[in-house]
Design a protein around this nucleic acid. Structure first.
Lengths: 125, 125
DNA sequence: AATTTAGTTAGTCAATTAGCAAATTAGCTA
DNA sequence: TAGCTAATTTGCTAATTGACTAACTAAATT
């Protein structure tokens, strides 16, 4: 379960446009870099990318992108794994699934409460 | 549909602990202030609260809380309505529903892609 | 009409953030 | 081993954020 502190980190990580775009592209596999460069025998998720490949797609310096990726990692919405001198980045689907569940729980509870206590109406006299 | 700019605002709004707590309590109805003070004939959501009632529950000044509420409003995750000299605050369930759908769509697409393209396995040789 | 209540606006300040370049570390390659 | 590639760390700056108090506006109460 995601406690408040973890949620705050996730929201903060996703509140910056650059990080949001990195996340988007890591998540949708837009910047795949691993399959064509991987050493024989190295096991890497085929949608993984790496820091410099991500950086190629932004007009920001590598250190800036690296720092953003670190923040996404610390929010636990991506995972990173060093193989050789590259750092492979993958989406952390479990955290996203939990976020979906949190928001959905809010909606469900809200609807249930409204029905149970207020007869499914939003206004009172 | 929530475009990127709207999502960024929502994430930013929820990335601050004070705003997160305000949101939580507005959403779960913890700080109800309206029913016992409402004027005859004034229609207010029974789970609505107002700015000063929220502020009572925090060790921050009223202007600070007011500014936080403004940011939550501009992120469209709460709505505010002035009645007399009070501002009643309500959760905006529709935006939360959309957030739940966005995260769920990400999860669903990820699972589908993995199954379709990678045979439901995360690693390749 | 004067006072109180509810809330916002304006101005200030310290802390944090997001960017950069330079230096450093670690691993690969010739 | 020397040099290249990938990434991180360090130190810097400008902009933004989150808090405050004081001053203000608007509505309700006395």
């Amino acid at each position: 379960m995601l406690d408040m502190e973890k949620k705050l980190k996730i929201f903060k990580a996703l509140s910056n446009q650059t990080r949001f775009m990195i996340f988007k592209n890591v998540f949708t596999g837009g910047y795949t870099c691993s399959l064509d460069k991987v050493q024989p025998g190295v096991k890497v998720n085929p949608i993984a990318t790496c820091v410099s490949t991500v950086a190629e797609h932004f007009n920001f310096s590598l250190p800036t992108i690296s720092a953003h990726i670190k923040e996404l990692k610390e929010a636990n919405i991506i995972t990173v794994e060093k193989k050789g001198n590259k750092v492979y980045i993958e989406p952390n689907i479990e955290t996203i699934r939990e976020m979906a569940e949190c928001f959905q729980a809010l909606v469900t509870n809200f609807d249930n409460n409204r029905e149970l206590f207020f007869g499914d109406t939003l206004s009172v006299k």
